[in-house]
Simulated scan of single mutants.
Amino acid sequence: MTVEMQTAIPIAIEPKDERHNESYQALVWRRLKRSWTGMVGLILVGLLIFMAVFADFLSPVDPKATGVGFAPPQAISISDRDGNFVFPPRSYPLRETATLDPITFQPVIGPDYDNPQILGFLVKGAPYRLFGLIPAERHLFGTVDGSPVHLLGTDKFGRDVLSRIFYGSRISLMIALVVVSIVTVVGTTIGMASGYFGGRFDIWTQRIVELVLAFPQLPLYLALTSLIPVTAPTNVFLAFVIFVMSALGWAQMSREVRGKTLALARIDYVRAAMAIGATDRRIIFQHIFPNVMSHVIVAVTLAIPNVVLLESFLGFLGFAVKPPLMSWGLMLQDTATYSVIGSYPWILSPVAFVLITVFAFNALGDGLRDAVDPY
């Protein structure tokens, strides 16, 4: 008697691919994570926004407090003047010495080794209001006894450069974000409408766009900003600068979006929506706008550094922000002469933050440019 043995044949079960359920945002994020430049840009942009929001907490000194003018940066040391190890780290306050600078004939600022400053984290300092509402006096770092410490030196009025950079990031980034937001909304709306409706509306709209693009922007910026009187309130001057930048910046965005809309308006699903009687508003915002959005996102990330550079340049010339407001461009006014730069190079510190901002948004824009089309 023969017993037939039935051998079970193993069946290989392929793992379920979850990617077919991913949304468009998940696909973009997965593609962006593969770009190391895009991720570096994203991290730097996040740090810049954090710095602008929590500038009060990060600033070790009141940015409006004055002291010794053009004092060099204070070094952080973990040893005393005899070379012995000390902890926590300390810094040494700056004082004028009897030595004169051979170029400026000003007293040379040197460290005072007899009065060391003990550094620490979450120390008490100048009072402020977090988010403009919550009273606080804790700062991320500073001296234990509350005396000022200038890690990036001071300007000609003795104001701390590092604290002014933190506060100046608010105005510089705020101007860039507001201007780009207005340019994006106006340029995208006009560009989609011009490309979709066509005809006379498109012809006249493009003539206006060409007129705006034909103006030499820099002389026009200087001419328009000079119309504001010097005695005007700082908020009015700032609003006018934002208006001028927005009025001259929407045309390029409109031209780019119009080109994308002209191509999308001929796609089958758009023509099908027209055939079934969908309204123009529904077609523009439900069918065309989502497909234009990827280009707009990339254009926004590349436009922000341009506005930051423009604000810094206009601020250097004195046409962007007026005191008591602070911005990176306004801080660079102290670098107008070569003798000052040669003797006090630390006042060029805002340039480093401008370069970091430009690199961060450009790197993020390059990463998004590849990630917005995951297929």
Rank of each mutant, 00 (worst) to 15 (best):
E4Y: 10
P15E: 14
L32E: 11
I49Y: 09
F57W: 11
S59M: 03
S59P: 00
A75N: 10
S77W: 04
G83I: 02
T99N: 15
I109S: 02
P111Y: 03
Q117G: 00
I118W: 01
R129F: 12
L133H: 00
A136V: 01
H139K: 11
H150P: 00
L152S: 03
L162F: 12
M174I: 03
T184V: 13
V185T: 09
V186D: 06
T188D: 12
G191R: 05
F197N: 04
G199N: 11
E210L: 09
P216M: 02
P216H: 03
L218Q: 06
S226M: 11
A232T: 05
N235E: 08
F237H: 12
R258K: 14
L264Q: 03
R266K: 13
R266F: 07
I267Q: 15
Y269M: 09
A275R: 09
D280I: 06
D280A: 12
R282Q: 05
I283G: 02
V292P: 00
V298H: 09
A303C: 07
L309A: 12
F319A: 15
K322M: 08
P324A: 08
L325S: 07
M326K: 10
T337I: 13
S339H: 11
P345L: 13
W346A: 10
S349E: 07
V351T: 14
A360L: 01
L364Q: 04
D366Y: 05
L368K: 03
D370I: 01
